[in-house]
Structures are given as structure tokens and as C-alpha cells.
């Protein structure tokens, strides 16, 4: 499993995965840099607690970046194997198909986790730069940086599944577009839709529910995807 993952990390060299891992969080924070750069005075008037309001502004984009990032990563990774149909070589190695699938999932989960760490650091950095009056809300900062990640795991499992079994990568990308539209419409879609979860909204107003749902349903979708992957013939 470790060696399989080393191989997967080797394969994504020079393909821009690391670039995107950095760009995602940078982009999310950069949008707020522009936002605050243009109308800082106005934004400071919007709330009693400027730090929290700033975090909420950041969090408006985190789910969108996550859902789209997942769609891009999974599809990108599948196209690397599809390009010369390297699946047939990979599956003819003395490793189980489950290991192959798990390794891909774990690698992408790692990249996204790194993105989340970076998001926290960049958010903190720009927040400190803005020098709000309040103390830094550490707990909220950690929550807003990592909760969406865990809540997005079902989306990762679903997109990985679709991307690995689709010959035509237009299908997972279109699914990703649907996903981002749902994520953007999180306030009007029902609680059961997995794309709503990264926004941390729910009728009980308890973000931790989304994290737990993310972990549980993420595992479930992962297992379903993996079983389907192992069941299929490699052409």
C-alpha cells in the first residue's frame, strides 16, 4: 500500500497537481484580499465581530473550491491512467484492485488535506494582516478550515468512482459542475444532498453533524465505488 502510494505520487509529477493544491487555498483567500482591498470599510460595518465575519466570507468560497478541486483532481488522475490505458498494466501487477483504488483515494485525500492546512495558514495570515480588533478565534479558524474537508469526503468518493469508471471524462466533469451548482445553492437545497454538507449548513445549525455525515457517507460511497471498480473488466 505504501509503495503503491509512492508510485501514485510519482505519477502526478509535472502534471500540476501540486500547483493546484496550493492554488486552491491561495485563490480562496486571494478573493477575500480583493474583497477587503476594495471595500474594507463597508465590510467592517457589516458585523459586530469582524474576525468571524471575515471567516464567514472565506467559507463562502471554500465549498465551491473543494467541490471543483475534487472534480478536477479525480478526473485528472483518471486521465493519466486512461491516456495510454495504463490500467491494464497496473491491474496486471501483483496488487489487489482494492489497493489500487484505495491508494488513489488516499493520495487525493492527502492533497486536499494539505490544501486545507494551507487554507488555514493563508486565512490566518491575511486575517492578522487586516488587524481586526478582536482576538484570533482559533477554534473557529480550525473548524472553518477542516470541517468542510471532512464534509466533502462523500463528494470525493463519488467523483473518484465516476472518474475511474468513465471512459469519457466529460461525464465526471459535468457531474462536478452539477456539484458546484448545488454547493452554491446550499441554502435552498435539502439537507440530504451531499453537496450541501461542505457549507456546514443544516437545519440544526450544528456543523459537526455535517462532519460526521461526511465521514460516514464518505466511507459508504467509497466502499460502493471500490466494489464496482473491482468488479469491472479492464479493457
Amino acid at each position: 500500500m505504501i509503495s503503491m502510494m509512492q508510485t501514485d505520487f510519482l505519477k502526478i509529477k509535472r502534471k500540476g497537481f501540486w500547483f493546484l493544491t496550493f492554488l486552491g487555498p491561495i485563490g480562496v483567500v486571494a478573493l477575500q484580499m480583493v474583497n477587503y482591498g476594495v471595500r474594507k470599510e463597508y465590510l467592517l460595518q457589516q458585523s459586530e465581530n469582524d474576525w468571524l465575519y471575515y471567516l464567514q466570507n472565506i467559507t463562502a468560497f471554500t465549498p465551491l473550491a473543494l467541490v471543483l478541486g475534487i472534480a478536477i483532481f479525480t478526473s485528472f488522475m483518471a486521465s493519466i491512467e486512461n491516456e495510454t490505458n495504463a490500467w491494464k498494466q497496473l491491474i496486471a501487477l501483483p496488487v489487489s484492485k482494492m489497493t489500487v483504488y484505495l491508494s488513489k483515494f488516499t493520495m487525493l485525500a492527502c492533497l486536499l488535506f494539505i490544501s486545507s492546512i494551507l487554507l488555514m495558514l493563508f486565512t490566518l495570515g491575511f486575517g492578522v494582516f487586516l488587524s481586526f480588533d478582536e482576538a484570533i478565534p482559533w477554534l473557529e479558524l480550525v473548524k472553518y478550515s477542516f470541517y468542510p474537508y471532512f464534509a466533502a469526503l462523500p463528494v470525493l468518493a463519488l467523483q473518484l468512482w465516476i472518474a475511474t469508471v468513465s471512459k469519457n471524462q466529460g461525464i465526471p466533469i459535468t457531474t462536478g459542475i452539477f456539484g458546484v451548482i448545488f454547493a452554491y445553492s446550499a441554502h435552498i437545497i435539502p439537507d440530504w444532498m451531499i453537496w450541501k454538507w461542505p457549507s456546514l449548513m443544516n437545519q440544526w445549525d450544528e456543523p459537526l453533524i455535517n462532519v460526521l455525515l461526511g465521514l460516514g457517507v464518505g466511507c459508504l460511497l467509497y466502499v460502493v465505488g471500490m466494489l464496482d471498480f473491482t468488479r469491472r473488466d479492464v479493457l
Binding site: K13, I80, E83, T84, N85, K88, Q89, A92
Partner: peptide, 16 residues
């Protein structure tokens, strides 16, 4: 583990 294979066109990663 004891078999080597080349099926149809070779599979490789062009960017490596």
C-alpha cells in the same frame, strides 16, 4: 508476481 506482460499497445506515462 511471477508473470510479466505487455498487452497490445504499451502502457506508459508520457510525462515521465
Amino acid at each position: 508476481a511471477r508473470v510479466g506482460s505487455l498487452v497490445e499497445n504499451p502502457s506508459y506515462y508520457p510525462h515521465l
